[in-house]
């Protein structure tokens, strides 16, 4: 199913943002908030893994029901998971389309990757001492 993905700030994202290697940060920023009817349509329960495919690839997140989002829209806190699928084009303004990406969502058996793993997939080297 297609959705409009909006990214944004949440309190939990803010609380964990200074500690990006923590599981709490990973958990918060890999959460995809959805309307419960959309989740029903996809056969999803809270916490189920989903594959979110955007203009630049795909990433695994977990679905969570939210009263704040409309049907057809999903909300993902700012962070490395959303950015794994956000296009870098800025329409020559410097600013990517962080709040207007059409994504495909489907259930998956895979688990969300750790932040470290996402970074290593792009050529980085995790530091975990």
């Amino acid at each position: 199913m297609s959705f409009l993905m909006i990214t944004g700030r949440t309190v939990n994202q803010g609380v964990t943002v200074e500690n990006k290697t923590s599981p709490e940060y990973a958990a918060e920023t890999s959460t995809c908030f959805m309307h419960e009817f959309d989740m029903m349509e996809l056969g999803l329960d809270d916490g189920d893994a989903i594959r979110v495919t955007g203009p630049c690839g795909d990433v695994v997140m977990r679905a969570a029901a939210s009263l704040e989002v409309e049907m057809g829209t999903v909300f993902v806190p700012y962070g490395p998971y959303a950015n794994h699928i956000v296009a870098a084009g800025t329409r020559s303004t410097g600013m990517p389309d962080f709040k207007s990406h059409v994504v495909e969502i489907e259930p998956t058996d895979e688990e969300p990757k750790l932040v470290h793993k996402l970074m290593e997939d792009l050529g980085g080297l995790a530091y975990d001492r």
Binding site: N19, N83, V86, V115, L122, Y127, D128
Partner: peptide
């Protein structure tokens, strides 16, 4: 953590120095 992946792919290819108190993405 905050840039689209394509930007990170280039960061991986060039030398990068960061000033930051914490290990981050």
């Amino acid at each position: 953590a905050h840039f689209p992946r394509k930007c990170l792919e280039h960061l991986a290819e060039i030398p990068v120095v960061q000033l930051d108190p914490y290990p981050n993405a």
